[in-house]
């Protein structure tokens, strides 16, 4: 058991023992290899089921929206930024969450790792920065760093930005020379090519809305896709409807997206939905100097303005 897991269990059970929280949100071992999935503990015993490894890809801030109980929450860098978002957007008061911060060194890309073996991965083991995967007749030892998710590779906020406790020493933040290389690559395409890029991206979308539902930002009581008066968007497999959904979903995250990657993690069809939100992350940063979820003291870009904002595009 790694130290993080040990400390998560200890801190969580202490909190529950002392009655300082009603429940703790963390990750538990799933029923498949490479599945560390959200789980809750209401008793110190249940907290012994918590784990931490490099498969804790989802964002736990997703579960604290409008909760009434006092919640302890395990938060890596991106989760903590979404907790800040939630506090700013009045989805939960600061004193209702006890944030157990986890300095994070990134989560691995399960699809790239799965692709390494001819058949299923039967076992996944992690020792420090080294990963061992085993299939029916194959075995591979991997350097974790080389298999990080795309968003983790360029993450510059690995340490929780807000926390009440920490499970380990802070880690060194990465310095990324050109964090928006991926967006720039799409920007460099011709218009038609960009259109086709996104068309191809969405060709397998089944509209399960896992991307929306895994996202901590998507908490509207009625999503625009579910509205019927007027009905903004058709419900079928029409490509225009699918694209409209993805555009508007992404746009609703403008100035709020922390690039945690939960949307891509949840997608059953492995669609790179971050290609939509990344453009907004870039623009929010380059135009408004804004990185979401870092501070409670400034309002997000679409909630405020400056009289001197650029007018260049306006006639």
């Amino acid at each position: 058991m790694n130290n993080y897991t040990k400390n998560i269990r200890k801190i969580s059970s202490n909190l529950l023992e002392d009655g300082r929280v009603d429940l703790v949100l963390g990750f538990k071992r799933g029923t498949l290899p490479m599945a560390s999935v959200p789980g809750i503990a209401r008793t110190p015993e249940e907290a012994q089921g918590f784990v931490w490894d490099t498969n804790c890809r989802l964002n736990l801030a997703n579960y604290i929206t409008d909760q009434k109980e006092k919640i302890g929450i395990i938060a890596k860098g991106c989760d903590s930024r979404n907790i800040v978002n939630h506090i700013m957007e009045n989805k939960i008061p600061r004193d209702q969450v006890y944030i157990i911060g986890v300095p994070c060194t990134g989560m691995v890309d399960k699809n790239r790792i799965r692709a390494l073996l001819d058949d299923e991965i039967k076992e996944f083991k992690e020792e420090g920065e080294v990963i061992l995967i085993r299939g029916a007749g194959q075995e591979r030892v991997l350097d974790k760093e080389a298999y990080l998710r795309d968003n983790c590779k360029i993450c510059t906020h690995r340490n929780p930005v807000i926390h009440d406790d920490l499970v380990g020493a802070l880690v060194k933040e990465q310095k990324i020379e050109d964090p928006f290389r991926d967006v720039a690559a799409i920007e460099a395409m011709e218009g038609e090519e960009r259109w086709n890029h996104f068309e191809g991206l969405l060709s397998n979308c089944i509209r399960c809305y896992a991307c929306r539902n895994a996202c901590p930002l998507c908490y509207c009581p009625a999503c625009f896709v579910d509205e019927s008066k007027p009905q903004w968007i058709g419900k079928g497999q029409d490509p225009t409807d699918i694209r409209t959904f993805h555009f508007l979903r992404a746009y609703h995250c403008a100035g709020r997206c922390t690039d945690c990657g939960a949307c891509e993690e949840a997608c059953p069809m492995d669609i790179q939905v971050r290609d939509f939100t990344r453009k907004l992350v870039k623009d929010s940063f380059e135009i408004y100097g804004w990185e979401p979820g870092l501070t409670l003291d400034r309002r997000p870009p679409l909630e405020t303005f400056k009289p001197e904002d650029s007018d260049k595009f306006i006639k």
Binding site: P38, G39, Y63, C208, N213, A214, A266
Partner: peptide, 10 residues
């Protein structure tokens, strides 16, 4: 922990 997507049904 269910996020209420429709993946399982689809």
């Amino acid at each position: 922990t269910c996020i209420n997507c429709g993946t399982c049904t689809f």
